[in-house]
């Protein structure tokens, strides 16, 4: 069973972002179970998982809740950020045999730039806009976050930095899955990603 999950918290993205991404992925994953983890289900055309009332977190930190043992998912899990446009078949880059590991994108636009490896800046060369994992196998991510979440949210600007600097084991997707539209050089990829930009449909 393949689960495809979106997380929508707050009002940065609309129900239409969820529905559009769902439509774009359907031709490639027609048999997947689609879910949206959100506190505002209005207008969303796929099944909704209500955001946990406790512990309550805000913004992108809700992505970590996907790894919780309380998340009602079974089988393989594939997550997409909502600021993504599916351009061509992403399946070439997402190996359904390797969901055993936590797999994340490489932020290719940062690779080679030494400023991202300054230790106490806690920056990273990964990007969590696409993630794969097996349900129930990454519960340590959420559990660890919950041990000291306020401190982690002060220390790290986002979940990518948390994953790397808290030494969460992970692998990287093959190159070519995403093109980060806001970063040069532009490249041909299966998904255009609008990270750091306003993504209007």
């Amino acid at each position: 069973m393949l689960n495809i999950i979106f997380v929508k918290h707050g009002d940065k993205y609309s129900a239409e972002h969820v529905n559009t991404l769902h439509k774009q992925l359907l031709p490639y994953y027609p048999d997947a179970m689609y879910h949206c983890y959100t506190e505002s289900p209005d207008g969303i055309n796929i099944p909704v998982i209500p955001i946990f009332k406790k512990p309550s977190v805000r913004k992108w930190w809700n992505k970590l809740a996907m790894f919780s043992a309380d998340m009602p998912l079974e089988g393989q899990c594939l997550y997409f950020d909502l600021d993504m446009k599916i351009v061509s078949d992403p399946r070439r880059f997402i190996n359904l045999k390797s969901f055993k590991d936590l797999t994340i994108l490489e932020a290719y636009w940062k690779v080679g730039d030494p400023k991202y490896s300054i230790k106490h800046a806690y920056d990273v060369y990964i990007n969590s806009s696409v993630i794969t994992w097996e349900a129930g196998e990454q519960t340590h991510v959420w559990d660890h976050f919950c041990t000291n979440k306020d401190y982690f949210m002060r220390k790290y600007a986002g979940i990518d930095r948390f994953l790397v600097h808290e030494n969460i084991p992970h692998k990287i997707f093959p190159d070519g899955l995403i093109n980060s539209v806001g970063n040069l050089p532009n490249r041909t990829a299966a998904i255009d990603m609008y990270n750091g930009m306003t993504y209007e449909l």
Binding site: S56, V57, R58, K59, W61, K149, M153
Partner: peptide, 13 residues
């Protein structure tokens, strides 16, 4: 004590 400083990530209430 509380506040209306909504922009801090860890301010959930």
């Amino acid at each position: 004590q509380s506040n209306n400083y909504f922009s801090v990530d860890s301010h959930i209430n």
